[in-house]
Design a protein around this nucleic acid. Structure first.
Lengths: 210, 210, 210, 210
DNA sequence: CATGAATGAGCATTCATTCAT
DNA sequence: TATGAATGAATGCTCATTCAT
């Protein structure tokens, strides 16, 4: 296992982190082609050749970033617990995803960008890990539906809907703020969104009748 | 009469359309910076200088595309009718947006890309026309809520939710298909999505109690 | 003789004149490379292909212009008359050259530009017609000197000095006006120049002593 | 201390000098538009991107060149000394200017070219530093005239005449050599010019009468 | 005659990457 | 480790010229 990951000194690792953080800034704001090594190096406070000492190619930075991103990206869904209260579990999931949109908008945009491009670098993971995870969680949700705890509907499209509505606040941030205007577009927009979405999904998933 | 629009020959208009179509392909797939004039010219089946005879700058193509896009983009929401049945109106809006995601995914991705970049070229329109339209429609929705026809909630965030969930099927198409798998990821995914979303929003907006 | 010059209709000739005038504007202001056919065509009020119908190549226009220029350029010197009063003849020549600088600054600049570039297109003429003419006129001047009518000095460098000082007011016009300032840099600058130069050369050529 | 001038390594400075020298060749021979970076790079013995490593834009090279030129250009006039013998001072000035025409013909042509184009990049300096300097020196000359040491005439046009006649030997070099012919057009042409011009101006400025 | 359309060659500039120290 | 220097391969755009009508 360790044979694949090269051994690195602590300083090396710190510099790599600085670079990755700078690169996240630049890639999420300008896309892969729009980002230049010069800009990343400048943002990282180092010279271009020095940066390339840590990552030999622009692609390497991007791919390292994507790889990490995918891990964080799946985490919130993983927490969805079969044993918990269905509506509370889903509400919790929505809240966690909204927090991520608020606290990690760069990651969200980087991911969205990759999707828009057709996921050239992460397709295998989508069809592998991600699909497996969603299938597993969909099964849990379907279980809740069969028990009658929540309304019967399509669990996978439900997950899509949660993804879409929450990530929207990161990916379409400019639009959200423009439409909400200065008053409602401030920090409270995430609280408003949480209230609205939790309500929407709660009512939307409450079993009708009985 | 239309003294602002330059007069163009038939051939010019046809070629311009061909170019715009090719450019939509390339821009939506690679973003502004990732798209090259060479690629667009190749996709349009003409030489680079010939393409530049019709559009003097890469930006001009992009801007023409964005301008048209914005018009199409607002159309579905405009149809939301105060006089109609609230739930039916909203269901209709969701269906129209889903059809757009299905039939015009390139436009959707182009728009999403622009938003991800911070809307450098359309911010004024977001804060102007778009905000005005949303405000107007939010007022209608709020009217319905006050009459008790639909559940009381935040109309603007409701609109965001509809945008997010429907556009998701165009913008995150790879992911959607990867997760749904070959079986459910075919053409029926839009029907499934429509059924799910209309159901979700219908239940989510049905006034509780009563 | 006529076999070389192609026969042209009157209209053709008129259009050619319009083009040449426009080209003189553009070439004298921007140099050969800096001038574009587009600009010349625009200045001439016709389409580019139409212009190229009259002159097949950019070079052709330039060369036609140069050829004509050379004829006009030699004219004032030709008038220098052996039989006239030496100082009056030279004063007259200075005045004619100054008038040309005032009335045909574009031609002067075009010629200066060609000289700066090393006269790639008119060297033969410089070494031929021009040299012959100068030699002939230098002989006249030398004759005057030998008669003692004017001071003994180098007649060819004298001619250079007259060329230089008069053309200066066309070629270095910006500098002349900047240095003279708004007051003295107006139309009167040519009169001042004439007064100064005629005086300078008159005194400078008056035989010293007895 | 010199916080405005960026710090450069020795190699950078050496290379920059090489480039500037090559650029002077090319710009003075072909003008700004006629000069290509390729040509300058070739003349400087380096690759085009390498050249652009030292000067990011073609304009930057040109402007650096112009800036230096202007300093050298004003120097000879600055030496004109109120306390010296008027005719000797002016003769000295003429000789210095002629030496510059002989030793720095490329600079002279570059400057002439800029003037022909209307001084797009140095107009402010013409109206500022240059005008001020000329005004100051004209005052000195006028002082001499008032004392009766030299003939009463227009001092500014006198300066123009000295500029014109001396620079002519650099700017119109081809013509000068063509007209003088192989014999008199060699190195001695500058000595002949000096003799002629010093004589002309000396006689031309000697107070008449008395 | 006139012009809309087309293009090859060129040009300034950018940029990822390599090299040498 | 760090960086100044160097470069091949684009890339957007211009422009003289040709073609077809």
């Amino acid at each position: 296992m360790d044979s694949i990951t090269p051994r690195r000194t602590r300083i090396q690792n710190e510099k790599r982190e600085i670079i990755l953080d700078a690169a996240l800034d630049v890639f999420s704001a300008h896309g892969f082609r729009g980002a230049t090594i010069d800009r990343i190096a400048e943002a990282a406070g180092m010279s271009k050749p020095n940066l390339l000492y840590y990552f030999r190619r622009k692609q390497d930075i991007y791919e390292t970033l994507m790889q990490r991103l995918l891990e964080t990206w799946l985490a919130p869904l993983k927490e969805l617990d079969d044993a918990g209260d269905p509506l509370a579990e889903l509400a919790g999931y929505i809240r966690r995803k909204l927090e991520m949109a608020r606290d990690y908008p760069r990651e969200s945009r980087l991911f969205a960008n990759e999707m828009l491009r057709g996921a050239p670098r992460v397709r295998p993971m989508l069809e592998g890990d991600l699909k497996d995870l969603v299938d597993a969680k969909a099964k849990i949700i379907r279980g809740w539906m069969e028990k009658g705890t929540i309304a019967r509907t399509d669990p996978v499209h439900l997950i899509f809907a949660i993804w879409a509505t929450t990530q929207h606040y990161a990916d379409f941030d400019v639009q959200v703020r423009a439409v909400l205007g200065p008053e409602r577009g401030g920090d409270r927009r995430f609280e408003d969104a949480a209230a609205f979405l939790v309500g929407l999904f709660a009512r939307g998933l409450t079993p009708s009748g009985g």
